[in-house]
Design a protein around this nucleic acid. Structure first.
Lengths: 203, 203
DNA sequence: CGCATGATGTTAATGTCGTCAACATAGACT
DNA sequence: AGTCTATGTTGACGACATTAACATCATGCG
């Protein structure tokens, strides 16, 4: 069945993806609070209860959006890291952070759902797993720096926490900054911030 | 009129505070998503629409909670800074960060509403103002470090952004960590993180 | 080929919620 | 006492999340 030829097919064809798409649009437009299943269904041209054939409840659709976001983030981080010489440890850490912030900046709706929607990750194992996979990249990267002698092993744990916290905080400030004028007074030299933090944890 | 003596007074006596209290309890219990005005009113022993005599809408009550949170945070930060010698610049920066994380940890509901509820601060000037007052403490502290020669003036802006992002990220990780077991594998040596960051931005 | 079956959508119904309008009460000021 | 205003209440409405019962279609089995 070709979904392009039929205008009013009883079955949608790919409702699941369409609903995820609609969710992203709505979150981008009205924030995670403003999103409603009913409206997502309307946007997909489908009845308000059709969503339950694909998602158990509202949380589940948000969890799926978050999961896709984590997967994409993982891909972005891997792509960046693959393009850097493997022995330039500090640069790898800085670029990892930059890629994280860049992801948040270019996929704000995803990022908001991933972190700002109060999702109970415990109840959505595949979402949690995707999140942990992304985090693991940072952990591995720090381990690589330790193995290469760029970072004392005793500081590894602190380094992970510090880097993670900083990039996460930078991403939030970046997103908020889009809305708030006051914050634009602060120049957001994100590379400089990350250089400073990497320098701080490596020395 | 003594509110303790009357069991069924038609007027509540201090409904506004009671509603704010109830909001905090509900957010602590069910997260910012789970909070409902109706339930807050129930908890305050009052009809579902009584809230509109005190708050324009749902956003407004959350904005008030956030405002009180920012004010308390400002007080906490000032208290800590007042207790430290004025020329120990790095220690002041570290302690400021610690106080920020401590606030988030001991007032999780406030913190979630302040940052994790998708509040439109533009629409609530007094909330926004309280938030900026808290931020200003950090800005002033960095300025003090610059004036004291502990930090080159060219790095002031980067220092503010980095510190803010890091403490904010640490606070989020700390809150998430309460729920997620996986993250507890990472030791959260927050003082060490802040020492590293302060060292990084000051040198 | 023709039908059974499961996957996918629809309509109907229920309870909750946010919000408004109209009405009620009580404490304060004249 | 009598009026005014702040504060609560009831009633109503539309949006929403969710469930149950029914409809349609695609697919594979005979």
């Amino acid at each position: 069945m070709n979904p392009l030829s039929k205008k009013k097919a009883y079955h949608h064809g790919d409702l699941r993806s369409a609903l995820v798409q609609a969710t992203l649009q709505l979150v981008a437009l009205r924030g995670p609070r403003g999103f409603s299943m009913t409206e997502a269904c309307r946007q997909a041209g489908v009845s308000a209860t059709a969503v339950y054939r694909h998602f158990a409840n509202k949380e589940a659709i948000l969890a799926e959006v978050a999961r896709q976001g984590f997967d994409q983030l993982t891909g972005d981080l891997r792509l960046v890291l693959d393009s850097i010489e493997s022995d330039n440890y500090r640069r790898r850490l800085v670029e990892t952070g930059l890629a994280y912030v860049a992801f948040a900046s270019s996929h704000p709706a995803h990022f908001q759902v991933m972190f700002g929607a109060g999702l109970d990750k415990e109840g959505h194992p595949e979402c949690q797993e995707s999140g942990e996979t992304a985090l693991q990249i940072l952990i591995d990267e720090v381990a690589r720096a330790v193995a290469g002698g760029a970072l004392p092993a005793t500081k590894a744990s602190t380094a992970i926490t510090t880097l993670w916290a900083t990039v996460h905080g930078l991403a939030m400030l970046d997103l908020d900054g889009i809305k708030s004028k006051k914050q634009e007074m602060l120049e957001f030299d994100i590379p400089a911030c990350l250089e400073a933090v990497v320098h701080g944890i490596c020395s």
